[in-house]
């Protein structure tokens, strides 16, 4: 993931270097994001565009807050699929989003570790 996919400097700037807040966000990422992904998967399985739109919108917001632009972009595509009622290709998008989220999780933890060690 390059800087366009995730911008750690921007995130640090936005939390004003507050590592405690960053730690809380990373912890929440670990507990909340799997549920969000599960919500998208469920919407795809149940072929529910409205649920897909809602779940995609929700995770998009979180990704934007974390400066994770690539993940946010995929989440937006899922949201728009839900908006248009087109479920085609949504499974693949979910797969890509899951990968991005996993990488992001690692990046966040690594960034936090590095900062805490300084």
């Amino acid at each position: 993931m390059n800087r366009e996919g995730f911008d750690p400097q921007a995130l640090l700037h936005r939390v004003d270097g507050n590592l405690t807040l960053l730690q809380e966000l990373v912890d929440l990422f670990g507990t909340e994001v799997p549920g969000m992904l599960a919500g998208i998967e469920k919407a795809i399985q149940q072929c529910s565009p409205s649920e897909l739109e809602r779940a995609g919108h929700k995770i998009k917001g979180s990704m934007l807050q974390l400066s994770a632009h690539a993940a946010a972009k995929i989440a937006l595509q899922l949201e728009e699929s839900g908006q248009t009622g087109s479920m085609e290709g949504t499974g693949l998008l979910l797969e890509k989003l899951t990968q991005e989220v996993n990488v992001l999780d690692q990046k966040l933890r690594s960034m936090l570790q590095n900062r805490l060690c300084r």
Binding site: V15, N18, L21, L25, L28, G61, S62, Q65
Partner: peptide
């Protein structure tokens, strides 16, 4: 805000 992460982020920012 219904998103727990977003809420945490915002309330965190407001600790300035």
């Amino acid at each position: 805000e219904d998103n727990v992460m977003d809420a945490k982020f915002i309330t965190g920012l407001l600790r300035l």
